[in-house]
Amino acid sequence: MIARGLLFVWIAVWMVLGFVWAPVVPVLGDTTRVLYFHIPAAWVTVLALAWSMIQSVLYLAKRRMEHDDHAAAAAELGILFCIVATISGSLWAKAMWGSYWNWDPRETSIFFLLLIYAAYLALRSAVDGEERRARLSAIYSAAAFVAVPFLMFIVPRIYDSLHPSPILPSPREKGSMDPRIRTVFLAMLVGFTALFWWLLSLRTRFARVERRRLDAAAAGA
């Protein structure tokens, strides 16, 4: 309860500081501030996908429904953060590159993540039976895991991208980043990650209660 309140205050305070305290980068101008939302959201997207896939593999190995709860919850939250990252990036692209969408390698990879999430959730909704749903979606998740490194890391490195610094600022660019911008950025990164973990724990606890209720109803009937 207190932790949740602190999290909200933390994010709100750093959001305000991002506008009033941190300076803007000369070329980027006011669009600098997308940094505080876009990169943390993109980071959480990747984190959620990795978490979902790890939990899927754990489910296949151990067959405990908690792993499936985590995989499903992380995917649901992942698609949410993925949409935030896509829209904020697209708005920024319109401001800086003059077009909302032009299949830059980074845009391709975020769209690809969105596709994986959507397909995973569509697959879940199309399978009858709790155990079979968990198993089949875990298999799909593990298979999609193979494709992720190819699009996230290989394709953008082979083909040129206009996108500034891949995923996280490289050490070279970090040196040139204003310390105040870096502070706000890292604080927002922490805030977004904590927000994800809090929502994830809410979602998985809810799934646990729901399963207990269904089990009790089945036992009573």
């Binding site: 391709t108 690809f112 596709l115 994986i116 959507a118 397909a119 569509a122 697959l123 199309a126 399978v127 009858d128 079979r132 089949l136 298999i139 799909y140 298979a143 999609a144 193979v146 494709a147 190819f150 699009l151 290989i154 394709v155």
Partner: peptide, 28 residues
């Protein structure tokens, strides 16, 4: 993917949707 979707409802439409993420690297 077809082995997975064969056990689901709405196979045909789901097959295309679920395969595409895995096929994008190939396509590119």
């Amino acid at each position: 993917v077809s082995a997975i979707i064969a056990q689901t409802r709405g196979r045909g439409a789901l097959f295309a949707g679920a395969s595409l993420p895995l096929l994008l690297p190939v396509l590119a």
